[in-house]
Design a binder for these strands. Sequence first.
DNA 1: AATTTTCACAACCGCTCGCGT
DNA 2: CACGCGAGCGGTTGTGAAAAT
Length: 309
Amino acid sequence: MNSSVMQNSRVARRGTAASKGPTQCCNKDEGIKRGPWTPEEDEVLAEFVRKEGEGRWRMLPRRAGLRRCGKSCRLRWMNYLRPSIRRGPISLAEEDLILRLHRLLGNRWSLIAGRIPGRTDNEIKNYWNTHLSKKLISQGIDPRTHKPLSDNNYSIIGSSNNKGNSNVNRHYDENNYKLESIPITSATPVPYTKPNPSTISVLLGETGGAVPMQDDHSNFLNGMNMNLELETRSAWRSTEGLDGFGDEVFSTFLDSLISEDSFLPQQQQNQLDGHSNTVDNISGGGTSRELGFDVGPLGALWDAPLNQQ
DNA sequence: AATTTTCACAACCGCTCGCGT
DNA sequence: CACGCGAGCGGTTGTGAAAAT
């Protein structure tokens, strides 16, 4: 996504509200093509966007002569054709950063992607679901909460290892990581709802589902005399109508959190404490700096409360 | 060698918000 | 204020490839 404003303001907003009806641009009739894109389609789309610029996605297919819906065109461009997209495997440094940001932000993939140049939200989401969540589990860490698995009755919802059966959640056996299928009851899915800051840790709870915010974040913010509401308000500013914290403030705030300099002492402290630490175990020494980021000086907070439950 | 299962990721879907009318 | 459009987000699904049986 290349709209940082949108990235920062359009944080997770899945909700329980009634639908506005079917998406209008994606009629399944009218010969709209679906499925994988061909090189020819890619070329047409890329050429058109190069000439005309991004935007007006709904009109684009007709104007470009593509038999795709606008949404599909936009997704293809954003996730695959954009020149700024970085190809190749996720590096250890990127993985480290994803982990840190996920611990801070939860499943807000576009926000996370916004801090990792060249990577898309979709790519990061996929990488998380297929690699990182399993990696954390194998190290005894709950990928939802970034806490030790033994603390929770653990289940993963939202893992993409659900191929071919959308009505099944996969439970990881925390000892051997085998998957077992459990039927979803009507009460199982947890729709995304905007959490009240005071009830965030409740929303994080044991039923699984999308995790909007994590209470270790709140602890660490509280630990810094920074109210959880700062983060919450920043993340949900669009829905709260809050203008007290600008995007640039939140951006700076995030930058400060991925600073390595002050992160290290906490890592060492955690090791001394004999606790496992997500980043410790996984990062392999990757740094934000390796990614070419200029991060701020405040990162001491990053890891402070992880094991203080 | 054939079939089944698992994995990885591209693409889709349903939903929401901002904005213009 | 209500409505529709354009756009973006996160969860889910589809599918080809690889691995296992």
